[in-house]
Design a protein around this nucleic acid. Structure first.
Length: 312
DNA sequence: CGAGTTTGACCTGCGC
DNA sequence: GCGCAGGTCAAACTCG
């Protein structure tokens, strides 16, 4: 296991650019995109979460929310993410620093994310070999997923939560393996998968599945200048991804690949072990038609409706 | 010694 | 039914 060097990220909130203490890391936000919470009247949008409120409407136009595709590609259009009580708002935090995200709320019509302790006990209590309590009639229900494309040199991005790797698999059509992580907190069933983009190895695709049922075990101690609590960066909320907020998904075809800036973990560099925290982000890469996203495989393929990939 | 990682085996879903 | 690929388990291992 490689030990990744921790990198401090600072001076990026409220600033279009920031750089880490390492000279090879620099992240900038020429503009921002986010999940489409525009018509969410009751809750903060991504940008507000980020403390970024002053972005032009034209940017909003570019905001894209990926239509879930994996399970029921057509039926997923215009589904909504279940809105959860504020106290449960411990969404998969964004990877540290800026990232490009494509949101996938797969299985949105499935059960609310909380499977509950019962389910979990059931799952953990039995070894797979003994018996797999699989409901035969029922497809395995999947948690809503959110994917983040992050330009980063490190695979596992800090997001304020503690993760335990439980598997790694080679991915077809990709030279890079996919890693599987699970939240280490007991009773929390959130998983995430991390893989590198096939077409651009510098891009890490992180897919969160499920919702955290607990506050971030690592109290964000943001190490960036200009960030204050009133800018939305206090405690876990600053790192929460509003996954369960209402998403109004577009029905029309997006003009370009569904990519949006993540809510930004903003380079969280907390005290967890292995705290590599930096990213590099090139906006145009993700927002232009014909970007590498089209050629992506693996997770991206999983997240982006295939017809979209072909149509561009 | 506990927590986390590695890795091969196993299970499941899906397409053919 | 078969094979493939994705996902998960768990023993062994590493590290602090």
């Amino acid at each position: 296991m490689e030990r990744k060097e921790a990198v401090k990220v600072e001076n990026f909130v409220g600033s279009p650019t920031f750089r880490s203490t390492t000279d090879h890391v620099q992240t900038s936000y020429p503009f921002m995109q986010g999940f489409d919470f525009v018509d969410d009247k009751s809750s903060l949008g991504f940008m507000e979460l980020l403390g970024v409120q002053d972005f032009s409407p034209s940017l909003l136009d570019m905001i894209q929310v990926q239509i879930p595709s994996v399970q029921t590609p057509s039926a997923q259009v215009a589904t909504e993410v279940v809105e959860s009580p504020p106290e449960v708002l411990n969404q998969p935090a964004t990877p540290n620093s800026s990232s490009i995200s494509s949101a996938s709320s797969e299985g949105l019509n499935d059960e609310p994310v909380n499977k509950g302790v019962d389910n979990e006990v059931e799952e953990q209590g039995k070894t797979k070999k003994e018996l797999k309590p699989k409901k035969t009639n029922q497809k395995r229900q999947r948690e809503p997923r959110f994917a983040f494309m992050t330009k980063s040199e490190v695979d596992h991005l800090e997001d304020g939560y503690r993760w335990r790797k439980y598997g790694q698999k080679a991915v077809k059509n990709s030279p890079f393996p996919r890693s599987y992580y699970r939240c280490t907190t007991a009773s929390c069933n959130v998983k995430k998968r991390v893989e590198r983009s096939f077409s651009d190895p510098s891009v890490v695709v992180t897919t969160y599945e499920g919702q955290h049922t607990h506050p971030s075990p690592v109290m964000p101690r943001p190490n960036f200048t200009g960030s204050t609590s009133d800018s939305g960066f206090s405690s876990t909320a600053a790192f929460a991804m509003p996954m369960q907020r209402r998403l109004s998904l577009y029905q029309q075809q997006p003009p370009f690949p569904l990519v949006s800036l993540s809510p930004l973990g903003f380079g969280y560099n907390g005290s967890t072990t292995n705290a590599p925290s930096y990213l590099q982000y090139e906006n145009r890469f993700y927002t232009s038609p014909g970007s590498a996203l089209h050629k992506d495989h693996g997770l991206l393929q999983d997240l982006v409706p295939s017809h979209m990939l072909k149509e561009e």
